[in-house]
Write a protein that binds this DNA or RNA. Structure first.
Length: 796
DNA sequence: GAAACCCGCGGAACG
DNA sequence: CGCGGGTTTC
C-alpha cells in the first residue's frame, strides 16, 4: 500500500534526494549509512513523522532506540516540534530505558520484584568485591575490575554462567563468581545494566505470547547509531522481527541508521560487524547512503575523507559539500605540551574576539579535543591563567557523586530493606560506631541464616548489636513516617534523619555537598512533575494535541501496553499497579546519571575527549596532542583493528568542525610524571597536503629536535587547575503547572474496591489524565500505587 | 575510629 | 605527577 502523499508535503521539503528516499522507504528492513553531518537525526525524526502522517502506523506502533538519553530526548523534542503528537505514546528511548520499561510491565514473568533497582557500575563493582571477600577469592589473581569486566562481557554476549565455555581453571573460577553474583543480585532484587538487556531479551525469546504481542505491536523499529550495538542488542532487535526458529512474523520493519566510519566503541563491546550481519540476516533490500554533508567546508571534509580511506573493509562512503573549500586546516607543532596549550589559548583569544567582531566565534563554539583526559590539565591551567572561561566534559555526573549515592542508598533501603549493597554503603556513614568487625560478624550471621543483612540484625547481640539495631530501627521508622509524604518531603526527612547533612556541615568542604543534597530534593520534585504524577496536580482538559488525526489511530480496546506509558511508571499489565514515586525516581537516577559537564549556561570554551565529542559540532575545533603513542594511542597500535579504530576516532574529531580546524602536537610532553619525546602522529601523513597550512615549518619529524626543551617546566607549571570555573548545578528546568478538573472522580479518603486487592482506602491522588495514579491502602495487601487509566477501581 | 601515610598505577565511556 | 585504595598509626 503506497501512501498517497503530495510530493510537496511540507515534511519532505528541503530534503535532498537521498534523505527523501530514506524518509519514504517502503515498510521493509533497511540500512541507512549516514555520514557525519548528513542530517541523520533529521531523517530519523522525519521518517517517524512521515509514517504517522501517512497513516501507515499509529504512535503506539513505533519504537525508536538510541544509545544516550540525550539522543532520545532530542528525537522527542524534534518530533514534538514537527507534529502535534503525544510523543509519550511511542516507545522512544535508550536500549536500557526501554528494557526497563518492558521489565517493569512484565516483572512477574521476568521473575523480578516490581520495584527492582538498578546497579550502576560502581554498585556492581562493590557487590563483586564483597562477594569475592566472602568467598576468599584472591584479589591479586582475580582483580575485581577484571571480574566485573568478565561478567559484563558475558552478558553482552548473551551468556549465562552455564553457557560460558571454561578452558582453564581461572575461567572456571570466574564463571563460579558470575554464578554467585547472579544469585546474590536475584536475592537482593537488583539488576545491573547488562541484566536489563539480557533479562528482557530472554523473556522475549522464551515467551511466545509476549514476543508475538510485541512483534505485532511494533510495526516500525528505528535504531540510531547502529554501529555501536553489541551482540546482545543486535539479538534483542532481531527478536522483534524473527522467531527463534528463524520464521519471520509478517509486517514489521527495522530501520537501522549508522556509520561504520564512526565506530569508536569496540572496547566496550560494540560490534561494527552487526551492520553487515543486519544486511544479510534481515535480507535488507534497501540501502541508502547519506553523503551530502551540511556541516563543514571541503578542506575539512577532504581531510576526513583522505584519512578514513586508509581503513580497510569499510562499507564505503565519501562526504561531499556544496560549501566550497573554506579555510585551510591549520597545523601547529609546539616544542612542549605547555607551549601547545599557550599557543592554543592565544589563537583562541583571536578567534573569540569579543562579540560581534569578525570572525568572532562565540566561546561555546570553540572546542578543544584530546585523546585522553589526562591531557586536559595543561590546557585548563593555560586557559585559567589567561582568564578564558572554559567547561570540561567528563568526570563524575550528578547521581554518581558520593554524597548523592549515600542519600540514594538510604532511599533504596526505604524501598527495599534487603538491598545489601545500599545497607553496607550507609550502615556506618555518617559514622555511628559500627566498625568493620561488627559488619563482618553481621555478614557471617546473614550468610548462615541465608537472609539479608537487615534481617540478620535482630540476631546480633552486645554493644555493636545495639548500634546496628538502632540503625535498622531508624530506617524502619523513617519508612513508616514517609508513607504518606511527597517525594520531596521523603528526601528531606531522610537527609535529616540519616545525619548526612549534619555530617557534611562539620566537614571542611562539605558546603558543596550539602548544596548537592539540596539539589537532589529539587531534582526529585521536578522529576515528579515531569513524569506527570505531581502531588496536587489534577487532570488537564482534553489536550488538543490528542485530538489530532495523528493520535486517533489509538485503539482504546488494545491491551494495556499499547497505551501511552510514561517512562518510569509503566503499570503492571494485569493489576495496573505502578511504582511509587520514590522507586520511580531511584530508577531514573540509575538510568540517567545526569550531565557530566562541569558547568553550563555561561559562554565558555568546551574541553572534552574525542569520544565525548561524537555527535557534537563546533565552529572551530582544536585537535591536540596528535603524537604517536598518544593519538594513535600506544595500546591500540599493536593490532591493525586497534589502529583502524584510532583512525575512525581521528575521523570523528575532524568532522566535528564547521569552519575552522586546527591540528596540533608537541615534541615533548609530561606524562605520568615524566617527560616523553614524541614523534608527530602518522595521521598527518594520511591527510591531503593541499588542504593543510603549516603554521610551523614541517620538519623531518625524527623527534630528535626536541632536546633542550621540556626540562624543568614541570616544576614551574601553575598548580591547582580549576575544573569548576563556572560551577553548575544539576539541570532542573521549571515545569509549568496547569489546572483543570479531575475526571476520575476519586478523592482521598474514599473507600474503593479492586478486583485483585479487594477493599481499601484512597490515601492520595497524583498526576493527570491518563497518567493519574492513586495511592490506596488495601485492607489485605498494604499500600499500593495504581494507574487509574488501567486499574479497575470502583468506589464502595 | 579517624588521620596520616604509602603504594601502585596510568585509554576512551553509554546505560 | 596526581589519584584512589589499602594499611599503618595514634
Amino acid at each position: 500500500m503506497s501512501p498517497e502523499v503530495p510530493a510537496e508535503s511540507p515534511l519532505l521539503q528541503s530534503l535532498n534526494p537521498e534523505q527523501r528516499a530514506a524518509v519514504t522507504l517502503p515498510p521493509e528492513h533497511a540500512l541507512i549509512l549516514a555520514g557525519a553531518g548528513s542530517g541523520k537525526t533529521r531523517v530519523l525524526t522525519t521518517r517517524i513523522a512521515w509514517l504517522l502522517t501517512t497513516g501507515q502506523v499509529s504512535p503506539g506502533g513505533i519504537m525508536a532506540v538510541t544509545f544516550t538519553n540525550k539522543a532520545a530526548k532530542e528525537m522527542m523534542t524534534r518530533l514534538g516540534a514537527m507534529l502535534p503528537v503525544n510523543v509519550r505514546g511511542m516507545w522512544i528511548g535508550t536500549f536500557h530505558g526501554l528494557c526497563n520499561r518492558f521489565l517493569r510491565a512484565h516483572y512477574k514473568l521476568a521473575n523480578l520484584p516490581q520495584s527492582f533497582q538498578i546497579l550502576d557500575t560502581q554498585d556492581q563493582l562493590s557487590a563483586i568485591k564483597r562477594l569475592m571477600k566472602q568467598h576468599g577469592v584472591d584479589e591479586e589473581r582475580f582483580p575485581p575490575k577484571e571480574v566485573q569486566w568478565f561478567i559484563a562481557g558475558c552478558k553482552e554476549d548473551g551468556q549465562r554462567p552455564k553457557d560460558v565455555p571454561t578452558r582453564t581453571e581461572e575461567d572456571r573460577r570466574r564463571v563460579e563468581l558470575y554464578q554467585l553474583y547472579e544469585e546474590r543480585c536475584q536475592r537482593e532484587g537488583v539488576v545491573d545494566f547488562g541484566e536489563l538487556m539480557l533479562r528482557s531479551y530472554e523473556l522475549l525469546r522464551d515467551n511466545d505470547a509476549v514476543r508475538a504481542h510485541y512483534q505485532r505491536r511494533f510495526r516500525h523499529i528505528l535504531v540510531d547509531e547502529f554501529q555501536d550495538t553489541n551482540r546482545l542488542q543486535y539479538a534483542w532487535l532481531k527478536i522483534f522481527a524473527f522467531n527463534p526458529d528463524g520464521s519471520a512474523p509478517a509486517g514489521n520493519a527495522v530501520l537501522a541508521v549508522g556509520d561504520d566510519d564512526q565506530s569508536i566503541y569496540a572496547f566496550r563491546g560494540a560490534r561494527v560487524g552487526n551492520m553487515q550481519d543486519f544486511v544479510r540476516e534481515f535480507h535488507v533490500a534497501h540501502q541508502i547512503k547519506l553523503e551530502q554533508n551540511y556541516r563543514s567546508y571541503s578542506n575539512i571534509l577532504d581531510s576526513a575523507n583522505a584519512l578514513i580511506s586508509h581503513n580497510k573493509g569499510r562499507l564505503g562512503k565519501n562526504l561531499r559539500t556544496d560549501q566550497g573549500p573554506g579555510e585551510p586546516v591549520r597545523v601547529y607543532e609546539a616544542p612542549t605540551d605547555l607551549a601547545e596549550a599557550q599557543w592554543l589559548v592565544e589563537e583562541m583569544r583571536h578567534l573569540a574576539r569579543d562579540q560581534g567582531t569578525e570572525p568572532g566565534f562565540a566561546k561555546r563554539e570553540i572546542a578543544v579535543l584530546y585523546r585522553s583526559n589526562a591531557q586536559s590539565r595543561v590546557i585548563e591551567t593555560a586557559l585559567f591563567n589567561a582568564g578564558v572561561p572554559y567547561r570540561v566534559y567528563g568526570g563524575l555526573r550528578f547521581f554518581e557523586r558520593a554524597e548523592i549515592k549515600h542519600a540514594l542508598a538510604y532511599l533504596r533501603l526505604l524501598e527495599n530493606p534487603n538491598d545489601d549493597t545500599s545497607f553496607l554503603r550507609v550502615v556506618n556513614f555518617p559514622p555511628r560506631g559500627i566498625g568493620a568487625r561488627t559488619i563482618e560478624q553481621l555478614q557471617d550471621a546473614a550468610r548462615a541464616a541465608g537472609c539479608s543483612l537487615h534481617d540478620a540484625v535482630s540476631a546480633t547481640t552486645g554493644k555493636a548489636g545495639a548500634n546496628l539495631g538502632a540503625f535498622v530501627a531508624k530506617i524502619d521508622v523513617v519508612r513508616e513516617q514517609t508513607q504518606d509524604l511527597s517525594l520531596r518531603e521523603i528526601i528531606e526527612l531522610v537527609l535529616q534523619h540519616s545525619g548526612l547533612v549534619d555530617h557534611y556541615r562539620s566537614e571542611k568542604d562539605g558546603a558543596e555537598r550539602i548544596e548537592n543534597l539540596e539539589e537532589l530534593a529539587s531534582a526529585a520534585e521536578s522529576f515528579v512533575m515531569q513524569e506527570g504524577f505531581g502531588r496536587d496536580a489534577v487532570a488537564l482538559p482534553i489536550d488538543e494535541l490528542s485530538q489530532s488525526p495523528v493520535s486517533q489511530g489509538l485503539d482504546p480496546n488494545q491491551p494495556i501496553l499499547d497505551q501511552p506509558a510514561p517512562d518510569y511508571v509503566a503499570p503492571d499489565a494485569e493489576t495496573g499497579e505502578t511504582l511509587s514515586p520514590l522507586a520511580a525516581f531511584l530508577t531514573h537516577a540509575a538510568l540517567e546519571a545526569g550531565d557530566n559537564q562541569a558547568s553550563a549556561g555561561q559562554d565558555a570554551v568546551q574541553l572534552m575527549t574525542v569520544h565525548s565529542a561524537k555527535g557534537l559540532e563546533f565552529d572551530a575545533v582544536f585537535v591536540t596532542g596528535l603524537e604517536e603513542g598518544l593519538f594513535p594511542s600506544e595500546r591500540s597500535m599493536a593490532d591493525y583493528e586497534g589502529l583502524e579504530e584510532e583512525r575512525r576516532l581521528m575521523y570523528v574529531a575532524i568532522t566535528r568542525a564547521r569552519k575552522r580546524l586546527y591540528l596540533s602536537y608537541a615534541q615533548t610532553r609530561l606524562l605520568h610524571g615524566q617527560t616523553r619525546y614524541n614523534v608527530r602522529s602518522r595521521f598527518f601523513d594520511e591527510l591531503p597536503e593541499a588542504a593543510l597550512k603549516w603554521l610551523t615549518p614541517k620538519n623531518q619529524n625524527f623527534g630528535g629536535s626536541a632536546f633542550g626543551f621540556g626540562t624543568g617546566y614541570g616544576s614551574t607549571r601553575s598548580p591547582g587547575a580549576q575544573r569548576d570555573w563556572n560551577p553548575d548545578r544539576f539541570a532542573n528546568p521549571p515545569v509549568p503547572v496547569q489546572k483543570a478538573a479531575p475526571s476520575h472522580g476519586l478523592k482521598s479518603g474514599m473507600q474503593v474496591f479492586h478486583t485483585k486487592f479487594g477493599e481499601g482506602t484512597v490515601i492520595s491522588i497524583e498526576g493527570q489524565g491518563d497518567d493519574a495514579r492513586a495511592q490506596v491502602k488495601f485492607n489485605r495487601h498494604g499500600i499500593k500505587w495504581l494507574a487509574l487509566a488501567v486499574a479497575k477501581l470502583t468506589p464502595v
